[in-house]
Lab assay of single mutants.
Amino acid sequence: HNLTITQGKLFFHYNPKLCLSEIHKMEEVSGTKGRQERNDIALKTNGDQASCENELLKFSYIRTSFDKILLRWEPYWPPDFRDLLGFMLFYKEAPYQNVTEFDGQDACGSNSWTVVDIDPPLRSNDPKSQNHPGWLMRGLKPWTQYAIFVKTLVTFSDERRTYGAKSDIIYVQTDATNPSVPLDPISVSNSSSQIILKWKPPSDPNGNITHYLVFWERQAEDSELFELDYCLKGLKLPSRTWSPPFESEDSQKHNQSEYEDSAGECCSCPKTDSQILKELEESSFRKTFEDYLHNVVFVPRKTSSGTGAEDPRPSRKRRSLGDVGNVTVAVPTVAAFPNTSSTSVPTSPEEHRPFEKVVNKESLVISGLRHFTGYRIELQACNQDTPEERCSVAAYVSARTMPEAKADDIVGPVTHEIFENNVVHLMWQEPKEPNGLIVLYEVSYRRYGDEELHLCVSRKHFALERGCRLRGLSPGNYSVRIRATSLAGNGSWTEPTYFYVTDYLDVPSNIA
C-alpha cells in the first residue's frame, strides 16, 4: 500500500525493539523526510534493546553428524571492536523451508527459537588472519532439518551509529543413524509349514526405512522333555500350542467401542483428552525405555581390526524358502538304536541362519518350516543398504507352526516275539517326523474274553527296548493296539495285532 503524509511529521519514542533503520525507511515511504526535528525521533529510546544489523554474515563451514552440527561463519568486528559482546545463534526444527525470524513471537518477546549466546573469538592483530567464530550444536535429532541463523550482539553506541551483522536463515539436516526397533511384532501360524509375521514401523526411523531383515531359527525343545518319565503317576503330560491366527481386521481397528449394538453396526467412541494424553505418555515412556535398553543392555560386537582377528559373527547367506525346513542338525536320541526319531534339535552355532529381506511392506510369510516346531524370529529395521547396512537392534518374537495331521501315527506293522515265561516283546517304529517329539506310547492289549488293559511306555523305555515287553501273560489269544502321544496330543491307534500265548508248562520236552 502507498502511504503519503502531505502535512505533519513523524514522532517515535520509547520503541526499544524498533531499529532506527526501520524508522528511516518509514520517513522515505511516507514522504516526511526532512520535516522531523532532532528530538522527534529519539536516538536513545528507539532500538536500544534490539540488534540492528546492516551487514550480512556468511557461514564459512558446515559439518553434520547424526546428532551434531558444527558451524563456522566469517569474522565480524565493528569499528570499535570492544562493542562486540558476542553472537546469538538461533535454531529450531523446520520440516519445511518457510521459516521466518519472527515465527511464534508474542507480545512478551518470546519466540519459538532456541538461542545460544556465543563469546567472540580472540581478536588477531592481523586483519587478514582473524579467527572464524563458530559453535557445535549438540543433542539434535537424527535425520531432522533445522533452520539456523546467527547475528551479532553489540553494545549501545553513544554516537548512535547503527552497526551489526546478521546471516540469512539456512537449512541444515542432520545425518541418518540406526533406527529404533520395529514396533509390535506379531507372529502367527496359518499352516503346519508357515508363519505369518506382521509389525509396525519404528517410532524413530532416523532416516528413510529402506528394508527390513527377518531372521528365523528353529528352537530346540526343553531338555526336561527328553529326561522326564511322563508315565509316572502324578506327572502331567506336557503340551505345546501353536500360535493362533490373526483376529479379523475389524476387531483390530483402534479407537473402536468394545460393545456392539445388537441391531447392527455401531460407531466408534472418540477417545477423551485424558485417554489420548495417557497414550502419549505411555508411548514416550516406551521410547525412553527402549533407548535405555539399547544403550545399557546391548553391547556392540567388536569388529575385526587390522591384526587379522576374525569377526566372530557368522556370515549372512541367503537361502531359498524351500530350504528352511531342514535348518537344524538332527541327532538321534540314543545312538545305539537307529530307529528312534531325530527330534532332539541342538543347533550348531556355526550354522548360517536363513533370512529374508523385506522391502516396502511390514509383513512376511515364512514358508518351508517344520510342522509343530518353535521358531525364534528376529526382526531388524534398516535405513541404508549400501555401502553397508545400517540397521536397528533386533526385536524378537516366537511362534510355533501348526501340527501336521497323521504325523504322530505309527507307520509300519507292530511285530512281536514270544519268549519263555510268557513274555512277549512288542516292537514298532517311532514316527519319523512327529509333531514336536514323542513323549510316550500307549499300549492297549486284551486277552479274548477279558477286559482291555493299558500300559504306558516312556520315551526312554522305548529307546532301550525298541518297544516294550509284556510279562506274566496268561495263555490265550491276544490283540494289541499302540498309539503315540506327542507334544500336540495323541496320534491314531494302530491296526490290531494278534498273537497267541501258550502255557509254557505244557511245552513238550526233548528229553527222552
Rank of each mutant, 00 (worst) to 15 (best):
V439Q: 08
S474Q: 08
H461A: 07
V424M: 11
K432N: 03
A335Y: 05
Y375Q: 02
W216A: 10
H454Q: 04
S458R: 06
F462I: 04
Y498I: 12
L364R: 12
G368Y: 04
T485I: 15
R370S: 14
K406F: 07
D450W: 11
P300W: 14
A263M: 12
V329T: 06
N383Q: 07
N383R: 02
N421D: 03
V329Q: 03
A407S: 07
L277V: 06
G412E: 07
R400W: 09
K233A: 15
T401P: 15
T340K: 14
Q219W: 15
C231K: 07
V296R: 13
V329P: 14
Y500R: 12
P312S: 13
S283M: 13
R218D: 06
S367W: 12
W216Q: 12
D250G: 06
T373L: 06
G476T: 01
V414S: 02
P338Q: 10
P434R: 02
R353T: 07
H461S: 10
T303N: 15
R376V: 06
R471K: 08
G325T: 13
P314K: 12
N295P: 02
D503H: 04
P238L: 04
L379M: 07
G467Y: 15
Y478R: 00
N421P: 13
A463D: 13
V423K: 04
W242M: 02
A381E: 03
N326H: 10
P387H: 08
L440K: 04
T415V: 14
R447A: 04
S251K: 14
L277F: 05
S305P: 11
P238Q: 04
V296P: 02
L473G: 00
L505M: 03
R318P: 11
N208G: 04
L487Q: 03
A463L: 11
F298M: 03
T328L: 10
G412Q: 11
D250W: 04
L455R: 14
H416Y: 12
Q429K: 15
D311M: 06
S320C: 09
I418Y: 13
L379P: 04
D222I: 06
P245S: 10
E247L: 10
C269F: 09
L277W: 05
A263W: 02
K432H: 14
Q384F: 12
V334E: 07
R481D: 01
C382I: 01
K271I: 06
K236P: 10
S444F: 10
G449E: 15
F372A: 07
R483H: 05
S479C: 05
V365A: 05
P238H: 06
S262W: 08
S458P: 11
N360T: 12
Q384L: 09
D311N: 11
H461M: 12
K361W: 10
K302E: 08
S283H: 15
Y212C: 04
L232Q: 14
N206L: 01
T401K: 01
S262G: 08
V439L: 13
H371L: 14
Q275S: 04
G449N: 08
S348E: 06
E281T: 03
P413H: 15
S492V: 09
Y212L: 01
S268W: 09
V327M: 09
V334W: 12
T373A: 08
K361N: 08
A394E: 15
E227N: 13
A399G: 10
L277P: 01
H211G: 12
L237F: 11
Y292R: 05
A395P: 03
V324Q: 12
G322N: 06
S344P: 09
I276M: 04
D385F: 13
F355H: 13
E224N: 15
S341A: 04
P508K: 14
V457M: 07
T502E: 10
I482H: 01
R459C: 04
I418A: 08
Y500K: 11
H454F: 03
Q219M: 06
R400C: 10
L225N: 04
L455F: 08
F246R: 04
P475R: 09
P245W: 12
S342R: 13
G368S: 10
H416M: 12
P244H: 15
E430V: 09
S509H: 14
G467K: 10
N339S: 13
C266N: 10
P496I: 06
V443I: 09
S367G: 09
S239H: 15
V439Y: 14
K236G: 09
N490I: 15
D409F: 14
L379N: 04
V329A: 01
S479H: 11
R319G: 14
R301K: 11
F246N: 14
T272K: 03
E433I: 15
F462H: 13
H211W: 15
N255P: 11
T343N: 12
A399V: 11
F289Q: 02
S305F: 13
E221A: 12
R319V: 14
S243A: 12
K361A: 10
P312A: 15
C468N: 00
K236T: 03
P312F: 08
T303Q: 12
Y504L: 11
Y292L: 03
T210R: 14
V501Q: 07
P354A: 09
C456M: 11
H454L: 08
R483Q: 06
N435E: 02
G467D: 01
D222E: 08
R447P: 13
E249W: 07
H416Q: 08
E290W: 02
S509F: 12
P349D: 09
P475M: 07
Y212K: 00
S262V: 13
T303K: 08
C231I: 02
V345L: 13
E282W: 06
P332A: 15
N435L: 00
C267Q: 04
T343W: 11
G264I: 07
D291H: 08
L453N: 12
S398K: 15
V393I: 15
Q380P: 00
G412P: 11
L453M: 09
T288C: 11
I482T: 01
S444N: 07
E442S: 14
V334L: 14
C267H: 11
L369P: 02
N477S: 11
P312V: 13
V334G: 15
E224Q: 15
L487A: 02
N435A: 05
R313W: 15
R376I: 07
K302F: 04
D261S: 10
R316C: 07
P349R: 14
K287R: 02
G449L: 11
K361I: 09
P349K: 09
N383W: 06
S486L: 03
R483L: 03
Q256E: 10
A395T: 06
R446H: 09
V393T: 04
G467P: 02
Y230I: 15
P431F: 03
S243W: 12
K317F: 15
F289K: 00
K432M: 07
P332M: 12
A336T: 10
W242I: 02
E249V: 11
T328C: 06
R286M: 00
G234W: 07
Y498E: 05
N206R: 03
L369H: 08
T502S: 08
Q384V: 10
R353L: 13
N326R: 14
R218T: 06
K406P: 08
P300F: 03
V299L: 09
S344R: 13
C468L: 07
T497P: 01
E265T: 14
T328K: 08
K361F: 11
S341M: 13
C391Y: 15
S363E: 12
L232I: 13
K236I: 05
S223T: 09
Y441S: 01
A394P: 08
D323M: 14
S363Q: 12
P434E: 01
L487S: 07
E217L: 15
S320E: 12
G306Q: 13
S344C: 11
A488F: 08
R471N: 08
D222C: 14
Y396K: 01
P205E: 11
A335F: 08
P205L: 09
G368H: 09
Q429E: 02
Q219F: 09
N490C: 10
R447G: 03
V359C: 13
R353F: 08
Q219V: 12
R483M: 11
V329S: 08
P270V: 04
